[in-house]
């Protein structure tokens, strides 16, 4: 039987519909969720991505406030701007578009955002709260994967989840969500490095395999069990052998596993399209928390 395709665009659209309703209800109470972004310079990739965020804000009813700073901005000036946003009650969430020019410390800038508005969930306080099972902001990739699975009717309770990635954006925050004793968690989680000895022994046992290593065909059919769910957050540009066009591929050998896996997030069209929507979701949640609703 062919694997179910977990369609990130569709799930994302569903969540945006829900968010539109939420913001309407909030508006009736005089609350408009506000998302501020900081963009330094004009890196084309960043400009495009910020554009996607702006569009999404408009679609779901979030007020977007972009702070565009020149490439040459000093660290002091950058931190001053972050401070202004920290203090602005209309701003519920702040993101910094990365990468920043080399003369600026990303670490310092991220640490300057108050935890209550750190919508990307990088601040140690958010990481700690999430891990302790307290309300917190969590990096978008992690919530995206959890939401995709849960909304596709894939319960994580008692499942063996193997995550091949141990970084602060994907593996650790996802483990942090899935080990919690709540309805979206209660999984048995294993964190593996791509270099873990006998990796296939772990992945073959797994009900759910999450992979993010940016290596095409890293997870092959012989590494998974029949019916396994695969969440793929890899992205590598390759040239299509037939059309010679560049395309993005994930870490899973999608063609090879499609008859064996139970469900799979495609690349492109899987986790990727969820990310901006997760930013919207967290912004709306932040506005609700600030107003004491939740």
């Amino acid at each position: 039987m062919a694997a179910t395709i977990l369609d990130g665009k569709k799930i994302s659209a569903e969540i945006r519909e829900e968010l539109k309703n939420e913001t309407k209800k909030l508006a009736a109470r005089g609350i408009i969720p506000g998302l501020a972004g900081i963009l330094v310079g004009e890196d084309p990739g960043s400009v495009t991505y910020v554009g996607l965020k702006s569009k999404a804000c408009e679609e779901v009813g979030i007020k977007e406030m972009m702070c565009r700073l020149p490439e040459t901005v000093t660290e002091q000036e950058l931190l001053r701007n972050i401070d202004i946003l920290n203090k602005d009650p209309k701003v519920h969430a702040i993101f910094i578009q990365l990468p920043m020019p080399k003369h600026l410390s990303e670490e310092k800038a991220l640490a300057a955002i108050v935890p209550e508005k750190d919508v990307d969930g990088f601040h140690a306080m958010n990481v700690g709260h999430a891990w302790m099972g307290q309300p917190a902001f969590v990096p978008a990739v992690a919530i995206a994967i959890q939401e995709m699975l849960v909304r596709s009717g894939i319960s994580l309770k008692d499942k063996e989840v193997v995550i091949v990635n141990v970084d602060n954006m994907v593996g650790k925050p996802l483990a942090s969500l899935l080990v919690q004793d709540n309805d979206k968690g209660r999984a048995n989680v294993t964190l593996c490095y791509p270099t873990t000895p006998n990796l296939a022994v772990y992945t073959r046992r797994a009900d759910v395999v999450v992979v993010s290593v940016n290596k095409p065909k890293f997870i092959t059919a012989d590494m998974i069990k029949e019916g396994a769910v695969l969440a793929d957050f890899g992205g590598t540009f390759v040239e299509d052998p037939v059309t010679k066009k560049r395309k993005t591929v994930g870490d899973v050998d999608a063609e090879g596993v499609k008859e064996k896996a139970g469900a799979i997030t495609p690349v492109p069209g899987g986790v990727g399209p969820m990310l901006v929507t997760m930013l919207m979701l967290s912004t709306v949640n932040s506005a609700k928390m600030a107003a004491g609703i939740v």
Partner: peptide, 11 residues
């Protein structure tokens, strides 16, 4: 402190 816990996880 949750900040200590967060730092631990972040490395």
């Amino acid at each position: 402190n949750p900040i200590s816990a967060g730092k631990l996880l972040l490395g």
